[in-house]
Write a protein that binds this DNA or RNA. Structure first.
Lengths: 204, 204
DNA sequence: AATAAATGAATGAATGTTCATTTATATTTG
DNA sequence: CAAATATAAATGAACATTCATTCATTTATT
């Protein structure tokens, strides 16, 4: 939220702040925005309700701050080691690996973000972080097309074909089940198979 | 919910029941599960709170019933005119058209279902309807592979590559924006481009 | 007359938020 | 160095409001 310069004041307990964030995530993922409340959160985090209003303006602010933080972490993780000048296959694979790693290792963040994205909160979210990233991605796509590596597709279509399948596999995995409620566990092999298919779709 | 045989009893007002369903959808989509309440719904639907408890056991039952109903409508719409013996391109295209038509014409249902699917309610949903259809889909995929039309892919991977891109385009459309918050409107052309790409991914 | 539908006021529990108070700590003062 | 001071952190009881749900009563239909 804020950075305080410490002169003549009691320091904010960062452990406590972090515990609030963590418990908020856990509660929301387990109980949904519906079953989530400030008093429950305070109790779960071992903190007074009033403390939450020192950290955040109100409940909505808390949720949106959490969302923005996670969004930032996600996009940064996604672009680790990525360069828009890379060739199609290399760049795409790095993004797949990055995304899969993040989602699988941070399931709470993923679940929370998914809930947020389809909830009415989505309209109130600040997506200034994602703008920069989407420009980088746009550049990558344009490059691949100009170099004659990829078919000439609108960025939106390209993006949907390139990443939605991976995202969908991970959704299945986190739900623990796929179509028709059948049990499902993600695997590197499935990811590679899907990636090969997607590459065929995009390559010229 | 229930079917009543009418002998010596007052008929349930189906207009009222339908109004409740419609307003529930609207409220949940606009305000989320969070901002949704039984009293608000009663007021919005012009009905007494008590009446809701004649129609539904409780709030959760109401939400789950709505979800089940919509899930059924969705799967039925999806498989209209579809036959698992169809060839890959024809069968897949029919499903794309069916899905797109339903989602675009029933945005409330789509938004509601999306919220439900990522919420903790999802674990309490009865998906017996979707099972039958996912078997039909499994048969279609198996056929396509056996006939040598499609690559040999696990159903989960096949499904993800085949439909997630379309679903993603429609999500962008309903949000009104795509990556980086850029405005987006779905078009038949985008759908066709994406479909062609997906076909290339799956065709042998 | 019989029966279920529908009502709506009422319930206690839980909600988000506030605020007067207390606690802890960094600085200043003696 | 120790005590006093200043300041923000943190508390938690209390608030009005809203919540899901109930039930005695009324309404409409067969």
């Amino acid at each position: 939220m804020f950075i305080y310069i410490c002169t003549e004041m009691r320091m904010r307990d960062e452990k406590k702040e972090e515990r609030v964030r963590q418990k908020a995530l856990e509660l929301i993922v387990k109980e949904g925005f519906d079953g989530f409340s400030m008093n429950k959160l305070a109790k779960a985090a071992g903190v007074s309700p009033g403390t939450l209003y020192i950290y955040y303006k109100d409940k909505e602010d808390l949720i949106l701050c959490l969302g923005q933080e996670i969004g930032k972490k996600m996009t940064e993780a996604t672009f680790k080691g990525f360069d828009k000048e890379m060739d199609l296959e290399t760049g795409l694979w790095i993004q797949w690996k990055n995304r899969a790693e993040f989602y699988l290792n941070q399931p709470l963040e993923m679940e929370f973000y998914d809930q947020l994205k389809v909830s009415p909160f989505k309209d109130k979210m600040d997506n200034s972080v994602t703008i920069k990233f989407s420009e980088e991605m746009g550049g990558f796509i344009r490059n691949a097309i100009n170099k004659g590596e990829a078919l000439s597709l609108t960025p939106v279509v390209f993006w949907s074909v390139a990443f939605a399948p991976l995202y969908n596999l991970i959704r299945f995995h986190l739900d623990g089940k796929s179509m028709g409620g059948r049990p499902y566990t993600f695997s590197e092999e499935h990811m590679k198979d899907a990636f090969k298919a997607v590459l065929r779709a995009l390559k010229v």
